[in-house]
Each structure stands twice: as C-alpha cells, then as structure tokens.
C-alpha cells in the first residue's frame, strides 16, 4: 500500500539536548497512526517538522511526495491540521470562521461543518473564545472535515476534553476516516480510549522509540505478569526478556513480549522464588504505562 508520509532518519536537537536520532516511520494510506509518549518526548516536535514549522537537524519528511520543509499550497490543502489545544482563530464566531476557510479550499464541504456545529449548543454569533474546550474541539474538527483533506494531523487532540467529548471525537473521527479512506496521524499523551482509534502506534520515550507496530500486534504480544517474590530485594535486568517492571513490597508487575512459559523459565534460571504467578489482561493505557513506567 502507498505511503502518504515517509519520515527518514529524523534527528533533532534543541541546543545540545537530543530529542531523537534516526527516527524512521511511514504512514500508509488509509491507516491511523498514533504517536504516543509522555510530555516532552518530542511529539509536537515531530508534528512541527511534518508541517514545516521546524527544520530537523538532519533527515527529512516526505508528505504526499513533497519535502515538508517546502510544502506547496496544494499539499497543504491536503493536510488537515489540528493544533494542540484545538487552537483556532478564536476571535471569530462559527459563522465567520467557516466563511474564512471556505475561500481557501475549492472542495469545501460546508455541510460537513454545519452538521457537526448543529450538535453543539452554541449560537452562530458566539465567539469561539467564549466556548468550552469540548465545543472548540468540535469546531476545529468540523473545519477539518469540511476541508476534506487526504491526511489529518492531530496534535494531542484529547487534551482538555471531558470523557464524553473524547469518546465523541474519537468515534466520529474513526468512522469518518474509515468511511472516507482518510489517513490520520495523531499524537497523544493520554492513552485512554486510544485503542478505539488507532491502527498503528509509535511509543516515544525520552530520546528513543520504544514501539513501532500495529496496535493489535502490540496488544497481543506485549504482556503483563503479576507474581509475588519471597525476597523483596530482587532486581531484574531490563533489556532482555524483561521490558520493564514495577515492584511494590513483594508484589511484582513484569512486562514482556515473551510468553508465560518463557518468563517462568527465565525466573527459574535466575533462581527467583515466586508465587501467585498470573498473566493480567491490559488496556492500551496499561500497556503504555507498563512500557514507559510511571515516572
């Protein structure tokens, strides 16, 4: 399948502080890729590079065949961009902002925007700055839907949304993307509900990529095992079989891509005594925290 976005060997630093080195990823046409990571791991940096607001130290991003450093007006018209916090021209009202944007896009889908606006309890003359965060997110989403781009780039869109709006946003977006064959690239530091949306995920940690695979694959291969140890001072080496672990007195939560059998034999080989060993089902959020740690 054709790639809408190809990022090759992206390397960026802020001063001497490395954000990441040699980051590679592609987004296939029609897929939804989620870039997950805690705050400050480089999610917005990636979005800025993708949109041409930042030139990486090295490497390049090709979007719809063009280098993101210099996007042509046509390619920009094919990217729907939702800024962190649903920033929009808040000095306009919902009527004005539609009038403004419609002048730029020949295939502007006015109805798509107004259908979504009809669901909000706002008056057409109400300024966007006076709306709630949830309402603003719908205005921003409505504008992107009306723009009808091939690629949607959403920067941390769940931020500030209450659970209802988050669900609404995610479900609406997924149905739309799948029905219209749109490609979506989204970042988030809130993982809750994210598995309802994304097909593939990249998990960022500081300076490195922890995971880059389809969500389904990640959820089936990445596992959590809980057990109790007799010696509370036991430590595990990370990097091999053990991806990460959390310890609370004698209780251990161990995260691994290995099977139950492999883990048990590993524990035996290390001479660790344990009891109450069980595999625990995880949500994507659990898996994310398990992988990146609580801190």
């Amino acid at each position: 399948m054709e790639n809408i976005v190809e990022c090759r060997n992206l390397t960026h630093y802020y001063g001497d502080k490395m954000v990441y080195e040699d980051l590679n990823f592609n987004i296939k046409k029609g897929s939804i890729l989620g870039l997950l990571g805690k705050n400050g791991t480089g999610k917005t940096t990636t979005i800025n590079i993708l949109n041409g607001y930042l030139t990486p130290r090295s490497g390049e991003c090709i979007i719809l065949g063009e280098n993101s450093k210099n996007l042509s007006p046509y390619v920009k018209s094919q990217i729907g961009y939702l800024i962190e916090n649903h920033v929009q021209y808040a000095f306009m009202n919902i009527y004005q902002i539609e009038k403004f944007y419609s002048g730029f896009y020949p295939n502007w889908k006015r109805d798509a925007y107004y259908d979504l606006m009809a669901k909000l309890k706002v008056t057409p003359k109400q300024k966007i700055s006076t709306m709630s965060c949830g309402q603003r997110s719908q205005v921003a989403l409505g504008l992107i839907l009306a723009q009808d781009p091939q690629l949607l780039v959403l920067d941390d869109f769940t931020m500030g949304l209450d659970p209802g709006y988050r669900r609404l946003f995610i479900d609406y977006l997924r149905n739309y993307a799948k029905a219209e064959g749109k490609t979506v690239f989204t970042t988030s530091h809130i993982i809750q509900d994210m598995e309802r949306l994304i097909d593939e995920c990249i998990v960022f940690d500081y300076n490195k990529v922890l995971v880059y695979m389809p969500v389904q694959e990640f959820m089936t291969t990445f596992k959590q095992f809980d057990f109790e140890v007799t010696n509370p001072n036991v430590e595990f080496d990370k990097g091999g079989l053990v991806e990460n672990y959390e310890k609370m007195d004698n209780s251990i939560e161990l995260f691994s891509y290995s099977t139950e059998k492999e883990v048990k034999s590993y524990l035996a080989s290390q001479g660790i005594e344990y009891s109450n060993f069980k595999q625990v089902p995880m949500t994507l959020e659990d898996a994310f925290i398990g992988l990146t740690g609580k801190y």
């Binding site: 046509y74 961009y81 920033v87 929009q88 808040a90």
Partner: peptide, 18 residues
Amino acid sequence: LPEVKDKRIKLTLHLPLN
C-alpha cells in the same frame, strides 16, 4: 497579537498558499 497568541500563526502558515 491574535496571530501569535497560542501560536495561531501556524494556522495562517498552514493555509494553502505560499
């Protein structure tokens, strides 16, 4: 000022024109 508030200039630069 309204352009730089919340870095809205990103929106302006993202418009499909040079």
